[in-house]
């Protein structure tokens, strides 16, 4: 929203054609940004998270014997929605995810802002990691967190390594800054090659 307001040009009097064109261009751009900004602020009444069963078809590895079976990737709409991402950020604190993973740098648990994904980087993988738990200390949150909140957490976790759009990723923190905001993090190329812990 604030980008839209800042960029909206003042009407120009008797502008040269080139400038007029530029103004029109900027106006269009501003409108686009404004719309994107609207989307950024959109509350999630119409945004449906994937169902929990959507994650059941996930694989933790790309390696398959014989011909590859077609993938059916899960699209988590929350990744494009600033409200859902900010909710994910809040829940990441409140469910104590941050107690182990901090702001993505890791500590008790592994880093989540880098390109190493021990148990898969896809939304469905992360959903399963949260719900099932993982053997090296990740607890199972099955039955503890509603599915839609897990998907909000999934979206936020992916924002830690720049996997979601920067127009929707959180741009600031309410707390002492210890790392760059999620919005300005470089997009890592996830690799299923995490070093053993």
């Amino acid at each position: 929203m604030r980008e839209g307001i800042l960029l909206f040009p003042r009407p120009a009097r008797r502008s040269p054609p080139a400038l007029r064109l530029r103004v029109v261009g900027m106006g269009a751009l501003a409108l686009l940004i404004f719309q994107a900004a609207c989307k950024r602020e959109e509350r999630g009444f119409r945004v449906q998270p994937p169902s929990a069963s959507a994650a059941e078809g996930s694989r933790m590895t790309d390696f398959q014997p014989g011909p590859r079976t077609p993938e059916s990737p899960v699209k988590n709409e929350y990744e494009d929605n600033a409200y859902a991402l900010s909710e994910g950020k809040r829940l990441f604190q409140e469910y104590n995810c941050s107690g182990c993973h901090f702001n993505g740098g890791g500590g008790i648990g592994p880093a989540l802002m880098d390109d190493e994904w021990l148990y898969g980087d896809k939304p469905e993988n992360i959903f399963e990691t949260i719900v099932e738990g993982r053997p090296n200390g990740m607890p199972s949150f099955r039955g503890k967190v509603p599915d839609y909140q897990v998907w909000q957490l999934v979206a936020y976790v992916r924002s830690l390594s720049g996997q979601v759009g920067s127009n929707a990723a959180p741009g600031r923190s309410d707390h002492m800054q210890t790392s760059s905001p999620e919005q300005s993090r470089p997009r890592e190329s996830p690799k299923l090659s995490g070093k053993p812990r």
Binding site: F102, G104, G105, G107, S179
Partner: peptide, 21 residues
């Protein structure tokens, strides 16, 4: 030394209860 033993990311100074920084 968790930053080495746990492959932590030094870009988050808050990692490892703030020892990363």
């Amino acid at each position: 030394g968790a930053i080495v033993a746990g492959n932590l990311d030094p870009r988050d100074g808050g990692g490892a209860l703030g020892f990363n920084n």
